[in-house]
């Protein structure tokens, strides 16, 4: 039974206020958002920060929903259920963290895309956003290809990411997006 206490201590040590692992759908997205909103409201968080956190949460959760549906078709429900979502709260920032399996074959492209985003400043991200929104069509998965750009804009910091190996076919895509708390 020690793992209950171990997990609890790990969460406390990392200042995690929400951890969710399981199935990711629009319904769970709404529940997690409602839970996080209550948490931010009750802690009296400033409305601008709250909106940015909410924004990053929506994009990261809907990313997982889209990609897990794709993965579950490919590999059965185990893969779709192995995603994780967390929010950490430090005195100076919130961190919205996600982890989900992605095909090794798409890892290099995704890494390049995120590296490119991290090269851009505020103006550069704005230009990229406008460029994509003008030229994109909504994909079959319902994405506009704007999620990471938007997260980077709302964060104002570099996106942190890593791709540890899961097995022969999948990496685990870990993403951390920080939102600074002011004052």
């Amino acid at each position: 039974m020690n793992y209950i206490y171990d997990l609890h201590r790990a969460m406390m040590a990392q200042n995690l206020i929400i951890v969710y692992q399981g199935e990711f759908t629009q319904e769970t997205t709404k529940s997690i958002l409602a839970m996080a909103e209550r948490n931010l409201d009750s802690s009296g968080e400033e409305s601008g920060i709250k909106r940015k956190v909410f924004n990053v949460m929506v994009e990261s959760l809907q990313n997982i929903v889209k990609h897990s549906s794709e993965a579950s078709v490919a590999a059965g429900s185990l893969v779709s259920q192995s995603a994780i979502f967390m929010i950490g709260k430090q005195p100076d920032r919130y961190s919205i963290m996600t982890g989900n399996p992605i095909k090794k074959s798409v890892t290099a492209d995704l890494k390049r895309k995120l590296d490119d985003l991290n090269q851009l400043d505020k103006e550069g991200l704005k230009e990229m956003y406008k460029e994509i929104i003008k030229n994109t069509q909504i994909s079959e998965k319902g994405g506009a290809g704007l999620g990471f750009v938007d997260m980077a804009r709302k964060s104002g910091e570099k996106l942190e990411f890593d791709f540890p190996e899961m097995d022969a076919e999948y990496n685990f895509f870990c993403l951390k997006v920080n939102v600074a708390r002011e004052g």
């Binding site: 924004n55 929506v58 929104i133 909504i138 506009a144 704007l146």
Partner: peptide, 12 residues
């Protein structure tokens, strides 16, 4: 009050 990126495309 809030819109996600997929909605922003549709708002355009």
């Amino acid at each position: 009050e809030y819109f996600n990126t997929a909605s922003s495309k549709l708002i355009l």
